[in-house]
Simulated assay, not measured.
Amino acid sequence: MANSHPLVDRGAAVSLTGQDLHLSFGDNHVLRGVDIHVEAGTTTTVIGPSGSGKSTLLRVLNRLHEPQQGDILIDGRSVLKDDPDQLRRRIGMVFQQFNLFPHRTVAQNVELGPRKLLGLDKDEARALAIAQLESVGLAHKADARPSTLSGGQQQRVAIARALAMHPQIMFFDEATSALDPELVKGVLALMTDLSEQGMTMIVVTHEMGYARDVSDHVVFMDEGMVVETGAPEQIFTDARSDRLKTFLSQIL
């Protein structure tokens, strides 16, 4: 059951909206009324200083943390009452750490979700895994163990694993920050390819070049709030808030 084109054969693109999202851990108010909207088939990057709530926002949007206030909508329909596992099947997530199973081969890591959650048999799952690994340039490593791969290769396997579930939306949470600088380029190129193929994506990143050149929309967060949003050219060349101007002056 391999896809004719692993990067695009996953149904119509969908939009994603978070409305007035709040989350606290004890006295720590991590998200303070966050609004975010990602149009179908577009890429939104979320930037901001460490501790601003960026990664927590992704975890709330796929309900790894349940919001204490607010709503999450896909194509305008609230998904808060849906089974969280069903929601997560629609959203692929790639983390900073690769989280591959070391005792399984590369292909087995990719096959596991489709077999357990999509009901594919062994041969179908293997064919799908090889197709997805081909799409990230790693089909030749299908029978290798993750420990024999570079960090950049392991992250590409993690992306293939997420794509094998046929997600309608992809989240990337600092997907390149654990990589050596020379390995970042390949992963960013793959993320750019996905964006160009029309995948709906939210990317939390410190890679300002990616945010400026690839994303359709940029969200700047600080202290659990959205401070400023806009097109990349506006955010990077005509920032309006003093906080964003200060942030950019420190990193560019």
Rank of each mutant, 00 (worst) to 15 (best):
P181V: 01
G224F: 10
R240Q: 13
I74V: 13
A2H: 07
H37L: 00
N28R: 10
I47W: 13
I74Q: 06
A158H: 10
T148V: 02
E207K: 14
A162W: 02
Q96I: 03
T148L: 00
Q69G: 03
T105E: 09
H22A: 04
P167S: 13
F101G: 00
I36P: 12
S50D: 12
L64N: 06
R243A: 04
R212Q: 06
L31P: 09
V187Y: 05
S150I: 10
G152Y: 12
R63S: 11
N99F: 12
G92D: 09
Q155N: 14
H29D: 13
V214K: 06
T44Y: 00
L183Q: 15
T45W: 00
S78F: 07
S4P: 13
E124A: 15
N109M: 04
N3S: 10
E196C: 01
L248C: 12
H166N: 15
L73G: 05
P84V: 14
E111Q: 15
L118D: 12
H217V: 02
E207M: 05
G26M: 02
E174I: 06
D121W: 02
H166V: 08
H65G: 02
V227S: 07
P84D: 15
A162E: 02
D216V: 00
H5Y: 12
S249W: 14
Q197H: 08
V30F: 04
Q153P: 00
N99A: 12
E196Y: 05
L248G: 05
L16T: 13
L31A: 00
F95S: 14
Q168S: 15
V79L: 08
R240C: 07
G33C: 01
A162L: 04
G209A: 14
G41E: 10
V79A: 07
D27Q: 09
N3R: 10
D9W: 01
N109D: 12
M221D: 04
I72C: 09
Q197T: 05
P167G: 12
H103Q: 12
E233C: 01
R156H: 08
V60M: 02
L112A: 13
V34D: 01
V79H: 04
D213R: 08
A12H: 04
R156G: 15
E196I: 03
K81C: 08
T43S: 09
L194Y: 11
R59M: 11
N109G: 08
